[in-house]
């Protein structure tokens, strides 16, 4: 009887509880954000490239998809602008796109040569020589092109900090303008030869193609999630999660370090653009609607979580339920 009496106020409590929960879900933060998705567009603010693109389409036959991943930024905003280039007075800094919408190569102005040479002489010539001809300590840079220089300097790998097996990515020492000036000077030593600096407009890219060509050409070293991993002899494939689109294309074309070189006969301009778009649009902002991504290292992390948190929590519960003597 006693328990029956208790249940008399059990029902209203349940009702109240459920109403609270219903309210939580109806007026909760997620649904509010979802509602505003349609009204707030990217036009109201300059969308930084760091915001996650929406990797899901609503154009399919399905009506439901994980809403946890919708973000208000359309993905057509990940194009790269290089400050300091477009603001240079005078001529248009880009060469005309060569048949590939979305990937063009930068035409560096002649005004860059002088400051570029000065910067090179002050910072690089000790190792690479006054005419970038190389020395016993450092390779010849002539003929490598402006894109190669831009890759090494803009990723902070040059100037080298120590004599590790492999140069590591770090905050760049030079700003974008200085980098381009040096690149322009090195390019001027061998006009028309080597890797040029690309300008990638990823809004024209096909992510699906990018996925396929990334998997075919890049995943074997950089892993399918772009996390990177150790290679033979102490080298490693670096993570791609920090790469800018133009750096991706520069790396593809110039083959820095142990990375193979892919010319335009191997990976076409369109494919390079798609790969760059996939790297920055998907790998750097992966769709993780299933929750925390556990570092993206696959079953190793999942196994640890499954065993330590899953089985571990349940063992703790056992420990509470059972006797401990």
């Amino acid at each position: 009887m006693r328990s029956l009496k208790k249940s008399a106020f059990l029902a209203p409590l349940a009702l109240v509880g459920s109403v609270v929960v219903v309210g939580l879900f109806v007026f909760g933060p997620t649904s509010a954000q979802a509602a505003s998705n349609t009204s707030v567009t990217a036009s109201t603010r300059p969308a930084p490239t760091t915001t996650s693109p929406n990797l899901f389409t609503s154009g399919s036959t399905s009506t439901t998809r994980p809403s946890g991943y919708t973000v208000p930024t359309p993905r057509s905003t990940t194009s790269t602008t290089i400050p300091g280039v477009t603001t240079l007075g005078g001529s248009q800094p880009y060469v005309a796109p060569t048949g590939t919408p979305g990937l063009a190569y930068l035409n560096l102005p002649a005004a860059f040569l002088k400051p570029g040479q000065a910067l090179f002489a002050a910072n690089c010539a000790t190792c690479h020589g006054n005419q970038a001809e190389g020395s016993s300590r450092a390779p010849n840079l002539q003929g490598l092109g402006s894109g190669t220089v831009d890759f090494w300097v803009s990723t902070g790998r040059m100037p080298l900090e120590n004599d590790a097996v492999q140069a590591t990515r770090k905050p760049p020492k030079f700003n974008q303008l200085q980098t381009l000036q040096m690149a322009a000077w090195v390019q001027s030593l061998t006009p028309g030869v080597g890797t040029q600096i690309p300008v990638v407009n990823t809004s024209k890219a096909n992510l699906s193609n990018g996925q396929q060509y990334f998997t075919l050409n890049c995943a074997a070293c950089h892993t399918i999630t772009g996390a990177g991993d150790a290679l033979a002899n102490g080298a490693y494939a670096p993570t791609l999660h920090l790469a800018k689109p133009y750096q991706v294309v520069e790396a593809i074309r110039s083959g820095p370090g142990n990375m193979p070189r892919f010319g335009s006969g191997n990976i076409t301009n369109a494919q390079a653009r798609d790969i760059a778009a996939y790297v920055v649009g998907v790998l750097q902002h992966p769709a993780n609607p299933g929750g925390y991504a556990l570092g993206g290292v696959g079953p190793v992390g999942e196994g640890f979580v499954g065993l330590l948190i899953g089985v571990g929590t349940l063992m703790l519960i056992c420990f509470w339920i059972g006797d401990r003597t």
């Binding site: 995943a219 892993t223 993780n288 696959g298 999942e302 499954g306």
Partner: peptide, 27 residues
């Protein structure tokens, strides 16, 4: 709900000539 497991949409379909580094089986 809170720890994502095996996000195979990120891996893409299997083709016998493709490979990813750092592939492990389940624990």
């Amino acid at each position: 709900g809170f720890a994502q497991i095996n996000p195979f949409w990120q891996f893409g379909p299997y083709h016998p000539y493709q490979i990813s580094y750092a592939v492990q089986p389940d624990w």
